[in-house]
Design a protein around this nucleic acid. Structure first.
Length: 567
RNA sequence: CGGGGUGUAGCGCAGUGGCUAGCGCGCCACGUUCGGGACGUGGAGGUCGGUGGUUCGAAUCCACUCACCCCGACCA
């Protein structure tokens, strides 16, 4: 491709709206163009890179025994109502009506459709296992798109679905997919962490995310340097110090004027925060629930959502709190009626806690569970935090941010039961198939690869996903000798199968071309110029190398191939 | 959805009630340049996000509205 024909322009300056490196560089290098919030056009350079990423994914999926198919993005909403996921996705699902007023959805994922396909094509245990996958455009009406291709509303996803006879089969499929994922991300130069993850409201047992650790990420990963434990903070568990249970003392009201926070309460009464209990109120699908946890811990809203089996969870607003008869700042589980009460197990270790009294400016000392208050549900709802200890090896946990590029789930039989995808086992009995699902955000992989592989001058494309392998610069293209030699070299490179982008601009200064070469970040830069030509040479520099090498004009194609082969 | 911000030429911005709305980059023509973002001369390009209002007069003031960005709750 000749630059003079390429529909892309590079930007001299950083776009002001772009905060993260990948967003900034993709805009500057002319890879993407925004069409709406969270909706981007992939310009030719990005598209070539995406096709390469897709091909890598395809090769690894095929090698893992999966077969590619293609399902529709446009689906009847009714299908989503059969599994209850229309409600679970809620406003995150784009929906529309056809001309007859029939409700349709733009699919955010494909479990329903793929399960129906398997239902119609798999009858016997002899047909299992099966793994199907597709490259597909997904639509999700995200509340807040951000960071270029990191979080968008229309994106390319590779989604795969496994169907097995039982849990042992699912384990095999899951392991095969996990290995395929490691291969994909290694080939794309994205050093991922595989972390335990929340499986969501529907999800079954195990779930893992593949995350690129980077400050630009949206997820928090809790890791253990001792044993290698890694988990999304949504899922992670941590050990916190548990006090000995003291002799229970009588409940005692104490005046606490103006005290509204745990920190203020602990300071006012001269007790550690771990000697207090925190009360938080949430609206779970509109129902106000009362949540109690030890004062020094934080509520993990994902764990809470799972414990409550609700679709929508948010902090209750002031009106809801007041309507429920709660006194913010001095609320307590003591004497609460008419509300569901959820408590973290941390309330049962230790004792003689300071709690609210449901009266303004008043708290109780010496509250003890279950003597003084009760809960309808005790569940782990604590947010793991760095500094807490690993549940396996008791090393202090660490925390880092990450971009999620892949996610795998063991789904179990939720979908097959809801949609009647059964098979006949060897004993002639009907059984629901056991499913897993596996997603890679293909367009996000491109963003992550750039986030990981760049410097101050621009992108450093990993060769396997670079849109072209060579950036060929013709310096002083109005010089007939240069134009001829560079054009000839361009033809020879393509003839040798080396994908080359040819900067054939006549009017651009050397500096412009070099800066664009660095910005776009192809693996190898070749320079044909009057100066080099007088010596019969071409200059070659890898994007990652500090210095250039001089290559005889006749040897350039072989030399380029050799330089590109070096990992 | 809560909080903060921005909409003026392809891109980045200036313009607080007054004449023909400016600047830089980019673009077109010609000429000079030619190894890390050159220079000269001449040009093209604008419903000032939209609607309504105030006013002799609105990019500028008011109301409503739309879009987009950033920070938080969601996901690949």
């Amino acid at each position: 491709m000749r630059i003079t024909k390429l529909v892309t322009r590079t930007l001299r300056d950083d776009p002001p709206e772009a905060e993260t490196a990948s967003h900034r560089l993709m805009l500057r290098a002319g890879l993407i163009q925004q069409v709406a919030a969270g909706v981007y056009a992939y310009l030719p350079l990005a598209w070539r890179a995406l096709l390469k990423i897709e091909q890598i994914v395809r090769e690894e999926m095929d090698a893992a025994g999966s077969q590619e198919l293609r399902m529709p993005a446009l689906q009847p909403l009714e299908l989503w109502e059969q599994t209850g996921r229309a409600a679970a996705f809620g406003d995150n699902m784009f929906s529309l009506e056809d001309r007859r007023g029939r409700p349709l959805a733009l699919a955010p994922t494909h479990e329903e459709v793929v399960t129906n396909i398997v239902k119609g094509n798999v009858q016997s245990y002899r047909d299992l296992p099966v793994i199907l996958y597709q490259m597909q455009t997904k639509f999700r009406d995200e509340p807040r798109p951000r960071a270029g291709l990191v979080r968008v509303r229309e994106f390319t996803m590779k989604d795969a679905y496994s169907f097995d006879a039982d849990d042992a089969g699912l384990d095999n499929s899951y392991q095969a997919m996990a290995q395929a994922y490691r291969n994909v991300f290694r080939r794309c130069s994205i050093p991922v962490v595989m972390a335990e993850a929340d499986s969501g409201a529907i999800g079954g047992k195990d779930s893992h995310e593949f995350l690129l650790p980077t400050g630009a990420g949206e997820d928090t990963i809790i890791t253990c340097p001792g044993c290698g434990y890694a988990a999304n903070a949504e899922k992670a568990e941590g050990l916190y110090p548990v006090q000995e249970t003291p002799e229970p003392l009588p409940l005692e009201a104490v005046s606490t004027p103006g005290v509204k926070t745990i920190a203020g309460l602990a300071e006012f009464l001269g007790v550690p925060e771990s000697q207090t209990l925190k009360a938080v109120f949430y609206a779970a699908d509109g129902e106000v629930v009362f949540v109690t946890i030890r004062g020094d811990l934080e509520v993990n809203e994902v764990k809470l959502k799972n414990a409550l089996h609700c679709n929508d969870l948010r902090l209750a607003d002031d009106d809801e709190v007041a309507a429920a008869g709660l006194v913010a700042g001095s609320a307590s589980a003591i004497g609460i009626t008419g509300l569901r009460r959820i408590a973290d197990p941390s309330i049962s270790g230790g004792g003689n806690f300071v709690v609210g009294a449901n009266q303004a400016d008043t708290h109780y000392r010496n509250a003890n569970y279950p003597r003084d208050f009760d809960a309808d549900l005790i569940a782990d709802i604590a947010l793991a935090q760095p500094g807490q200890r690993c549940v396996r090896c008791e090393t202090a946990l660490e925390s880092t941010r990450g971009v999620e590029v892949g996610h795998i789930f063991k789904l179990g039989t939720f979908f097959s039961e809801a949609l009647g995808a059964n098979y006949l086992d060897a004993d002639g009995r009907q059984q629901p198939v056991t499913m897993g699902c596996y997603g890679i955000g293909v367009s996000r992989v491109l963003a992550a690869a750039i986030e990981q592989n760049h410097d101050d001058n621009g992108i450093i494309f990993p060769p396997p996903i670079a849109p072209y392998q060579v950036y060929l610069v013709g310096l002083n293209m109005s010089d007939a000798g240069v134009a001829e030699a560079a054009g000839d070299l361009y033809d020879r490179l393509w003839a040798a199968g080396i994908e080359t982008l040819f900067d054939d601009r006549e009017d651009a200064a050397a500096g412009v071309k070099f800066n664009d070469a660095d910005l776009i970040g192809l693996p190898l830069r070749l320079v044909v110029s009057p100066r080099n030509l007088r010596q019969g040479m071409v200059e070659a520099r890898r994007r990652t190398a500090p210095d250039a090498a001089m290559i005889a004009l006749d040897d350039v194609v072989d030399a380029a191939r050799a330089m590109l082969a070096v990992p």
